[in-house]
Amino acid sequence: MTNPTMNLLLFAMLPYVALFTFFLGTILRYRKAPFTYSSLSSQFLENNQHFWGLTALHYGIIAILLGHLLGLLIPRQILLWNSRPLRLYVLEIFSLAFALMALVGFVGVIERRIRYPKARTVTTPADWIIESMLILQAAAGIYVAIFYPWGTSWYSTSAAPYLHSIFLFRPDISYLVTMPFIVKFHVVNGWLIVGFFPFTRLVHALVAPVPYLWRKPQLVRWYGIGILPVWPRRPSGARD
């Protein structure tokens, strides 16, 4: 990955192809085939090992993704936080722990799908591919975290500006070209996952049911009116 054209292709072109596919794919799929948006749970078929892989994977990956997002949104504050060694270590250790959780989870779920015939019957080619990509992604991330310290700091100074440049449509790959191979791999594989996302089960992450937190318990739908809550009662007058 030292060839300049290659760099341009992978770090400046691929992101746009991936993002374009991501948005077009997820939106079209949501509108044309809403039935296919599901977690596709397999807990019903195998419930012994299920807890370990699934919980570790999700708690790990959600924390890690939030971390990536924070680094992107508030890089300065992260650097400020890291200015004291103790705080830096805390952040690094927590990040590493969550990343390991995610990796263990990913390996756990794929191992479970190989091991249990019932889980295997509900596994598609897309599942094998995306879960392998996720394992590679987590493993590469952890390798970087261990061998190129302190990632939480240099993410804010190099990766965040690169991502900013992508999102602001002024791609600047100078931050990346000098990076070690494994970092480049993490970036490229990341974009590939983003591009492949709409064609996999991962779309379930987009419909995470957060509004449940403030929803009324009971729902009623009327012909031609739609959904209204029953109890606790709506304020006076409403036909509920």
Binding site: S39, L40, S41, Y212, R215, Q218, W222, I225, I227
Partner: peptide, 24 residues
Amino acid sequence: SGALYKRGEDGIVLIDQKRCRGWR
């Protein structure tokens, strides 16, 4: 996901298959 609902007119309880996300 709010996929389940009671029909206002007759009280039949249904699962909106397009809205169900398999959270179980």
